[in-house]
């Protein structure tokens, strides 16, 4: 896996939506590694996933009538100690990288945690953060 791809699914704020999406993914044998839910006061939102097979997940959801898309996100390695998240966010601020959306993802070996961030210019952010000595996913 070279880039880290996040699956976004459009959702109206209605009971049972997440259940339907996760059932569809489960039936296709897809493992969910991380989930984040964004809602708005306007009655809709997006549910975002990191899964083990993004392409299969996308095509399965579309076939089942969901509105979904894949986009690349940055995965920034978090140190497992007090101040670990602060270190990362202060570097993002220093480099004027604006976060559109963020959540945490623990990798397959269950020993490393990453902060997943959506940014405007992913390539630019990647280069800046590498210069700061930050470890990005995939390592």
């Amino acid at each position: 896996m070279n880039a880290l791809r996040q699956l976004s699914v459009f959702a109206e704020n209605k009971p049972g939506k997440i259940e339907k999406i996760t059932k569809t993914l489960a039936d296709a044998g897809i493992n969910i590694l991380a989930i984040s839910i964004t809602t708005t006061t306007e009655g809709f939102g997006a549910i975002k996933f990191i899964v083990d097979n993004s392409d299969l997940a996308l095509s399965t959801l579309k076939q089942n009538g969901f509105t979904a898309t894949l986009n690349e996100v940055l995965g920034i390695r978090l140190q497992d100690k007090p101040g670990g998240l602060y270190n990362v966010t202060s570097l993002l601020t220093k480099n004027s990288i604006n976060i559109e959306n963020a959540h945490v993802f623990v990798d397959g070996h269950r020993d490393k945690a990453y902060l997943l961030v959506e940014v405007d210019d992913i390539e630019d952010a990647r280069q800046r953060l590498r210069k700061e000595g930050i470890v990005l996913y995939p390592e």
Partner: peptide
């Protein structure tokens, strides 16, 4: 109903469409 091609995962795009 939104056009499925306009959905790029960015909630702010949905808000501005609305």
């Amino acid at each position: 109903e939104i056009d499925s091609n306009m959905f790029d995962g960015r909630i702010e795009h949905l808000v501005s469409l609305r």
